[in-house]
Amino acid sequence: MNTRHQPLYAYLLAALVMVGLSYGLPLLLPGDYIEAVYGSSQVVLDAEQEAQLRQELGGRKGFAAHLWGLVTLDWGHSLALQTPVSRLVLEALPWTLLLLGTAHLLALVLGFIAGVEAAWRRGGRLEKAGVGGATMLQGVPEIGSGVLLLLLFAYHLGWFPAGGATTAYAELSGGPWLLDVLHHLALPLLTLVLAYLPGNFLLTRAGMVMILGSPYLETARAKGLPPLRVRYVHAARNALLPVLTRFGLRLAFMITGALVVETIFAYPGLGTLLFTAIGSRDLPVIQAVVLLAALLMLLINLGLALLHRRLDPRIGHAL
């Protein structure tokens, strides 16, 4: 076996373990769909009706069938919505990707640049204010800032819609549709960027400050290079690594991270899907979303490991 590919085998094994867990863990969840739906309702089922209902909903598949179903995109039917799970997930996924992906990228780029510039001006008033502000902002949870933004901009000022990803039944297309999407995106996006940016900013700044004192940066300055090149190509490049690691780890929590914000803004992403599915014990949906999140985590980890090797040549030796 080629040692270079060993990590790949490890990743495959991990994926298999995750499929197993996603199959087994929900079995430990107390109660099932029928209890959740009828437990608190006025309708009382007798034993025969309950058995019939269970029959209709279908029993649990074995693990092999479950695995085969995953590969063939047959992820079962949602119990509550009576729709194929794959369709539900594929409908929700683009919205989550749009919201979370944009938020993460914006927070990464803006936080990184702000961190680099702040470190370059260390000791200055602007830098001190930035660090103080970011530290405070980092302490505010998404749920707090999200609700505040919602109150201010949606209810009081009315500048942005309070929920949803598009205006319902508007049947827009083309440019107006895009504007409508962005309009709906603004508040949840802002909430997430505010949550992610301070961490990136502080991490970048701290890394940069260390690098600014290093001998190789003095060499770069001695070489008479343009200041921007010294700052970004020589210094920031080496501060990028921890920030990217953080970015990747955060990205892996994309689905669960979206849960709070998507719920507050009623954004039709995977978070909302998962949240409602948990409420109604809609097991196939929960399984699918959780498994997707786990696999995403693995994929991102793999990507990060490969990226690290490219970014810091010393890491190739350590792996």
Partner: peptide
């Protein structure tokens, strides 16, 4: 000054490998 650096005067810094960018 930046115009003169490395053209008029260049340095072999101390610290060896630490004076080179690891990336």
């Amino acid at each position: 000054r930046n115009q003169l650096r490395w053209r008029r005067a260049a340095v072999v810094p101390q610290n060896g490998a630490a004076a080179l960018n690891p990336a």
